[in-house]
Write a protein that binds this DNA or RNA. Structure first.
Lengths: 161, 161
DNA sequence: ACGAATAGTTTGTAGTGCTAACAACATAGT
DNA sequence: ACTATGTTGTTAGCACTACAAACTATTCGT
């Protein structure tokens, strides 16, 4: 616990020192900045494909499914959204013809969101473009480092489930 | 360049394969997931302090300054926001008494955004809490790995400036 | 069959972020 | 000095995001 507190002070001091220096960001600070960069890439790519980042994320989550569509409740968990937020998001994406709601035969309350062919197409293009840009950013990084980062982050992510 | 293309296909195949497996995410996929996690932490902490993530980010950026405040144009660059978006954001944060606009003596068009004492206080608390949670998440990670990730990401971030 | 739980939607509110159009000031050119 | 041009920040209007509270329709436990 002392380690944590110490790191906080440390990172705070660094952040206050100089904005553009980039000399040895703390672990947390590096993650935060990286997160902003990723969000930025996400926003750029989404915009170029005429959807919002949230809509793009919805499409990408749907591609990960087995193709049978995902229920609204599951989706809200996957996207960390309350149900009313999701209703609106799916509404807007459905209006654009990228997704369609399919009523569940087994449970007449439920419905699943499925990608339309255009939605599938867009999702694949957006996903590919985002991955490509991130890989491109790291292109001149030693392959070893890239692998270690991916592995370490994967481990860290696994612990949060 | 071939490496990039290959990685894309690779990551795409992995993403489609299984959602919860977590076995060896690609570099880009790991970054994207990490980004979502960070965003989530940001949102949680901000909410607990009764501000939005965007407002919290604004406060944090202002603490990094030398205390003399930051001009709106500079802020919009730092936050990747168009100027009208920033006007609104600063309006709302100013209404909450966390920031105040100070007119520039040298250029009477310009103004600088400065943290009020309460804003400074909140910024420090939010920043500390975010860093603490991220460090806590990585607490059971080997210190070596944590350092390497921080260094590699710092290098990567430096190249995008 | 009846009450509680669940799936999703509607309503109302606050905030976000963009473009286009604007007002005020600063600066360079003549 | 004076006008043209650029800069700084704002306003207006739009679409989207996200939430809580309240609602409808259906399912499930007993």
């Amino acid at each position: 616990m002392e380690t944590v507190t110490e790191s906080v002070t440390h990172a705070g001091a660094q952040a206050g020192a100089q904005a553009g220096a980039q000399a040895g960001l703390g672990f947390a600070a590096a993650l935060v900045r990286m997160s902003h960069l990723v969000q930025h890439v996400f926003a750029d790519v989404s915009r170029e494909h005429d959807v919002t980042p949230q809509q793009a994320q919805l499409l990408c989550v749907l591609t990960s499914g087995d193709g049978a569509g995902v229920g609204m409740t599951d989706l809200s968990r996957l996207l960390h959204l309350e149900k009313p937020s999701l209703t609106g998001l799916v509404d807007r994406v459905e209006r654009r013809g990228l997704v369609s709601r399919v009523r569940d035969d087994a449970d007449r309350r439920a419905c699943r969101a499925e990608l339309t062919p255009e939605g599938e197409d867009l999702a694949v293009r957006v996903h590919g473009e985002i991955v490509a840009r991130l890989e491109a950013l790291a292109a001149d990084l030693p392959g070893d480092d890239r692998l270690r980062v991916a592995d370490t982050l994967t481990t860290l992510l696994a612990r949060t489930r």
